[in-house]
Simulated scan of single mutants.
Amino acid sequence: MPGATAVGITFDGGVVFASEKRIAYGNFLVSKTTKKTFTLTDKVGTSVAGLVADMQILVLQIKALAKIRKMELKRDVPQNSIAKMMSNMMYERRFFPLLTQVIVGGVVGKPTIYTLDPLGSVLPDEYAAVGTGAEMALGVLDHQFKENMSEKDATDLAIKSVKAATMRDSFSGDGIDVLVITKQGAKEFTEKL
Rank of each mutant, 00 (worst) to 15 (best):
G3H: 02
T5Q: 01
A6T: 05
V7T: 09
I9P: 00
I9K: 07
T10R: 08
F11E: 01
G13E: 02
V15P: 00
V16G: 06
V16H: 04
A18E: 03
A18Q: 05
S19G: 08
E20V: 07
K21R: 10
I23E: 06
I23N: 11
I23Y: 10
Y25P: 14
Y25N: 12
G26W: 11
F28G: 13
F28E: 09
V30Y: 09
V30L: 10
K32Y: 11
T33H: 13
T34V: 09
T34E: 03
K35Y: 14
T39F: 13
L40Y: 04
T41E: 08
V44E: 02
G45P: 01
G45S: 00
G45V: 01
T46I: 05
S47T: 10
S47V: 08
S47C: 07
S47K: 08
S47M: 11
V48S: 03
A49L: 06
L51H: 10
D54Y: 14
D54V: 03
M55Q: 05
L58V: 06
L58E: 08
V59L: 05
L60A: 13
I62W: 07
I62R: 10
I62S: 01
I62K: 07
A64W: 14
A64I: 12
L65Q: 09
L65R: 10
R69M: 11
K70Q: 15
M71G: 15
M71R: 15
E72H: 07
D76P: 01
P78R: 00
P78S: 05
N80Y: 13
S81M: 15
S81R: 12
I82R: 01
I82D: 00
A83H: 03
A83I: 01
K84F: 14
K84A: 12
K84L: 15
M86E: 07
N88Y: 13
N88V: 15
M90W: 10
P97M: 04
L99M: 13
L99F: 15
T100V: 11
V102W: 03
G105F: 00
G106D: 00
V108A: 03
V108G: 06
V108T: 06
K110G: 11
I113Y: 02
I113V: 09
I113F: 03
T115K: 04
T115G: 08
T115W: 15
L116I: 05
D117K: 05
P118S: 02
P118D: 07
L119V: 14
S121G: 13
V122T: 10
D125T: 13
A128W: 05
A128T: 08
G131L: 01
T132A: 03
M136R: 12
Q144W: 13
Q144F: 15
F145D: 06
E147Q: 13
N148R: 10
M149L: 11
S150P: 05
S150M: 02
S150F: 05
E151Y: 02
D153C: 04
A154P: 00
T155V: 06
I159L: 07
I159S: 07
K160T: 05
R168M: 06
D169W: 03
S170L: 14
S170T: 12
I176Q: 02
V178H: 01
V180D: 01
V180T: 08
K183C: 06
Q184S: 12
A186C: 04
E188Y: 15
F189V: 10
F189Y: 01
T190C: 13
T190V: 15
E191L: 09
K192C: 14
K192S: 12
K192E: 14
L193Y: 09
